[in-house]
């Protein structure tokens, strides 16, 4: 009886679609989140998702394809951030702040002005994991496969340029190309996952699983499978929980991620204390 109840949501196609796409999206964000966290790029992930919101809003108002509108907007925002920050007069963080908040504000203004498009815009803002279409599953899966392939093939370059970009460049790694590639993957990820978990929560999924993974291991390669595992499992469990608790799917997922982080943080602290205590006996 209990098992039948647990399987109840699986009778709905919309739930099955949402579960598949959320799990893949969680794993994808977890994977890229490793680089976001280790490079101190959390603000870029957060900023880009907000910037793309402007493009998503414009796409909804102009009734053009979401991926084309938001994608072009994301690329333009990325180029603007890179150009402004390269002048060094203001830092990259300030450049991200200016470009992305302006873009986000434009999205909000469009939402206010053209009420008829607001439903679609809200879906981008808060996520609509239960309104997932087959196209979303294909898009998220394709980007996940691409990210996996790129990270496999450029693993050493990514690791070197993340750890020590100056020496990587001296050693012949084209650091700017690696960074551009990573930024492009990040933009693509934000683009295909934003309709699933929403702009406001996407940055959390890019940061929390990777941060939790960092607390559990001192190995970069292990982080690369622990973070996607946490992202994927929390999305899977969060989706199921949200059905039974009747709560927002994206909020439930992020709260679960936060819980995993708290456990990892507490465990890391306890491990550290035990280690210090054992050193004290030496």
């Amino acid at each position: 009886m209990f098992a039948i109840d647990l399987l109840e949501p699986y009778g709905f196609q919309f739930f099955r679609n949402g579960l598949v796409v959320a799990t893949i999206a969680g794993a994808l964000c977890g994977l890229l989140g490793v680089f976001v966290v280790l490079r101190g790029m959390s603000y870029i992930g957060h900023g880009l998702s907000h910037a793309v919101f402007g493009g998503a809003a414009a796409s909804a108002v102009l009734q053009i394809n979401f991926f084309i509108g938001a994608g072009i907007w994301g690329i333009v925002s990325g180029v603007l951030i890179a150009r402004v920050s390269r002048r060094r007069v203001i830092g990259a963080d300030a450049a991200i702040g200016v470009v992305t908040t302006a873009s986000f504000a434009l999205g909000l203004a469009l939402m206010n002005r053209y009420g008829q498009a607001s439903k679609s815009i809200e879906a981008v803002l808060f996520g609509s994991v239960l309104g997932v279409k087959v196209g979303d599953i294909i898009a998220v899966s394709a980007v996940a496969m691409l990210a996996l392939a790129v990270i496999m093939l450029t693993y050493r370059k990514l690791l070197f340029s993340t750890f020590d970009p100056d020496v990587a460049q001296v050693s012949g790694v084209r650091v700017s190309l690696v960074e551009a590639m990573l930024l492009a993957l990040l933009s693509l990820t934000i683009l295909v996952t934003m309709r699933v978990i929403g702009t406001l929560l996407i940055s959390a999924l890019l940061v929390i699983p990777a941060a939790s993974a960092r607390l559990t291991t001192n190995s970069f390669s292990r982080m690369l499978w622990i973070a996607p595992l946490i992202g994927g499992v929390t999305c899977f469990v969060g989706m199921n929980l949200s059905y039974f608790l009747d709560t927002s799917a994206s909020a439930t997922i992020i709260l679960l991620d936060a819980l995993v982080f708290i456990i990892a943080y507490a465990t890391a602290g306890a491990r550290s204390r035990i280690r210090m205590a054992s050193l004290g006996h030496l």
Binding site: L153, L159, V167, S171
Partner: peptide
């Protein structure tokens, strides 16, 4: 081993 990044792709 990072310094062999340019010549080797194998992770």
């Amino acid at each position: 081993v990072m310094t062999r990044s340019r010549t080797t792709w194998w992770p």
